[in-house]
Each structure stands twice: as C-alpha cells, then as structure tokens.
Write a protein that binds this DNA or RNA. Structure first.
Lengths: 214, 214
DNA sequence: AAAAATATTGACCAATCGGTCAGGTTCGTT
DNA sequence: AACGAACCTGACCGATTGGTCAATATTTTT
C-alpha cells in the first residue's frame, strides 16, 4: 500500500511496476495465509495492497498465478537456507546452522510457511512439479551427506530421511502452528528469549538424539 | 454413501439418522481436508456422502456447524491418546507409548489432522475456545509431569513445552505433510515397514535427545 | 508536441455459493 | 388404520466471486 503510493509518486514505469508487484505480493502472502487459496479473494488482496481489484488483475492475470508466485518465493528462501549443508563438513556445525536458519525463517516468514503448508496439506494441486523436481533432488543430495556422516561414525545410524522430516516438521511448526503456541503462551507471541530457548532446545534434542553430541 | 443407503434400507429412524450423520461426517472430513473450510462446498460434501445437498442441511444447518463437529472429533481422539501420560510413571515407557499412538493416529486419521492443521494455520477462527480451555489445561498438566521427571533426574533438563511441541510437530507431520512424504518416496505412501522405521527413528531420536536412554 | 506504450479504474457480468422452503414420503404410535 | 413426527428433495434465491472491458490518465519515445 505505502509502497504502491510511493512508487506512484516516484514516477518511472519500472519503479511503479516494482512497487506495485511488491505490495501485491506482500498482501497476497498475508491473505493466502489467513484464508487459504479458495478463501482468499482478489478483492481482499487488492484492499490490503491499497489498489483497486482491476489493477491487481493487470499485474497478475489470475488468482492462481499470484498464488504460485507467493509459493515460489518461500520455497526459494528455504532452498537458500540449505547452503549450510554444503558450507561445512562437520555434522554438529552443519545441522546446528541449518536448524537455526530454518527456525529464523519461521520467525521472519511465518506467512509464507503457512501458505506452503496449506498447499501441501491439500496435496499440492498447484506445485506438484516443484516437489517432483527441485525438492526431490535437494533431498537426495542431503540424504547422501547424512549417510556419509553415518558411514564415518560421526552420528548414530538413523534413517536420514526421517531425520530431515523431523527437522522440517519441528522448525516449521513454529510458523504454521504459531497461533497455537501463542495461545499456550498466554495469548502472546514467544519473546525473543523464549524463542532462543526453543531454538536451543530443538537443536540439543536433535543433535543428542542422533549421537552427534554426548 | 453406502452407509446412508443401507441405513435407509435398514429402516428405523434412529438407524437412518446415525447412518446419515456418519456418512456426512466422513465425507466432510475428506472434503474439508482437501479444500479447506472456505474451499469446501456443501454440495461437494453432499455428493461425497451420497445425499442431496438439501438433506445435508437438514442434519447440519450450516457448513460451519459441520466443520466444528469434524474438528471436535479429531481433537477428542488426540485427547484420548494422551492417557499414556497418566498410565505409567516411567518417562521412557510413557513417551514411547505417546509417540507411537500419535504416529498411529497420523496414519489412521490423516484427514482429521489436516483439518485441524488448517484451522490452526488460519488462527483458529472457529475453535479458539478449545485452545484456551481444554488444550491449555491438558498442556499444563503434562508439563508438570515432565518437570517431575526432570526434577527426579530421569531425563535431561530441557524445556518441557518445547519437547511437547516437537512431538506434536513430528508426529502430525506424517499426516499433514503426507503428500510431500509420498512424493519423496517415489509417489507411493510409506509401506508398513517404512512407517515402522519412521516411528522407531522418531522415538529413538527424541528419547536419546532428552537423555532418557543412552 | 504528438504519438505510442503503459498504467489505472468504475462498472459490469456469468458462475457459483450457502441456505431456504413447500410439498412429498416414510416411520412410529395409538 | 390413521395421525403426527421425522425425513427427504427439486427448485429456487440473494449474495459474492474471479475476471473483463472500455474509457481515462500518465509516462516514454519519436
């Protein structure tokens, strides 16, 4: 909203386009997270973005196209977070960093995570191709890394894929189920200190659980 | 569908009502899981239940009333699963049983779990009262049990609530993200053997992670 | 400065939705 | 058998939705 107006004042076509797309994407992320794909209305997204509905359809022809962009964005953020697996060879360091980054993303991008979760729950009607290509390759390569750690005796011989699922589930839970967590915290979001403690608890249980630390 | 028709043949009013309600609830669970509250249509639910839409509204006046029943049902199933905490005083035995039961529910009731997840993601617009009463009390009492285990030195001094969240997240992941897991398993559901291995992996990592087993 | 390209918007539309209702059928009770 | 209660359903309706379009405004190019 503010973005769109500023861009409009700003002037150049390129800036207008960039500003409006950014405003629409931010609004869409929020509305899709709160209402789901079917429940979200383009009118509501437009209001949240501070533009008329017809203008939204000028930038994104269909609701589905907009939805897909929102999902692609969060997926790419997660992919980048996975660099920690490549950056270092030590399981303790690599996993600690990966878990911490994923927890941080749950804190900074809870809405995107929710949109993703919703899509998977509904059997990925829009992004099945992503699962079958990018995600499949990514997972296979990380499982190979974990298997190497096991072969070297650096962690206990657990089944790598179920460890990955555990990390995904646990970290994303703080975004997707954030409302439940807040409710159980006396209707407040976790404080910085509480969240740090959660991060530490999660990391410790997993690292100790796979025998990477005593 | 079959149920409703059989009940209709069967005859008695009570049987008709029971059969139809059961058919509607089963259909609703499936459609709500696949499309979300907003995306689910009463017409689609009616077709899945094998009855005309008007008849569905005879049993459940509004879509929201039906939705609420579906959520109450899965919530009650989870509550009963929690008995393992009371049944025994040993952390290894209690947690093993709790994790196993929750994993089994993810396998037997994935649709209900998805409906619940969807509701929480969207900030519980329909069942906030449940979170603030039943779930809050339940959580407090289990945290007390875990704290006792810590005080007795039977498990490591981790933060109990984050352990609970970890168990919830990990076990429910096998229901809510079941489609992703299947896709990463070559487009097949986990076999019985694979699921058993997942159960074992999850249980071991958590128990070892909290220092309950070496 | 004028023509071309891009951006903006109110008004509009066909399709779909949740829910109603009148009139009919079946079942339980006496 | 006959009466009331419970069950069933096709037809219907107001409200909302995603998307279109013609007209207008602004920026860029010539």
């Amino acid at each position: 909203m503010a973005l769109a107006r500023q861009a409009r004042r700003n002037g150049t076509k390129a800036a207008i386009r960039e500003g409006n797309e950014k405003a629409i994407l931010a609004a869409a992320e929020e509305v899709f997270a709160d209402y789901g794909l079917a429940g979200a209305t383009t009118s509501r997204i437009a209001v949240a973005a501070g533009i008329p509905k017809a203008n939204l359809h000028y930038y994104f022809p269909t609701k589905e196209a907009l939805y897909r962009r929102v999902i692609e964005d969060i997926f790419n953020i997660w992919l980048e977070a996975a660099a920690s697996f490549d950056d270092c060879d030590d399981p303790v360091e690599a996993l600690t960093q990966y878990i911490h980054i994923k927890m941080d993303i749950s804190r900074t991008h809870p809405k995107g995570s929710k949109v993703w979760a919703n899509e998977i729950i509904q059997r990925a009607p829009m992004i099945q191709d992503y699962l079958e290509t990018t995600l499949r390759e990514w997972t296979a390569s990380r499982i190979a890394v974990i298997e190497k750690w096991i072969a070297e005796g650096r962690i206990a011989p657990i089944e790598p894929r179920y460890l990955l699922y555990m990390i995904w589930a646990t970290t994303q839970h703080y975004a997707d189920f954030g409302h439940q967590i807040s409710t159980l915290n006396g209707d407040r979001d976790l404080s910085e200190a509480q969240f740090a403690k959660a991060k530490e608890t999660v990391t410790q249980i997993i690292l100790r659980g796979i025998g990477a630390i005593p």
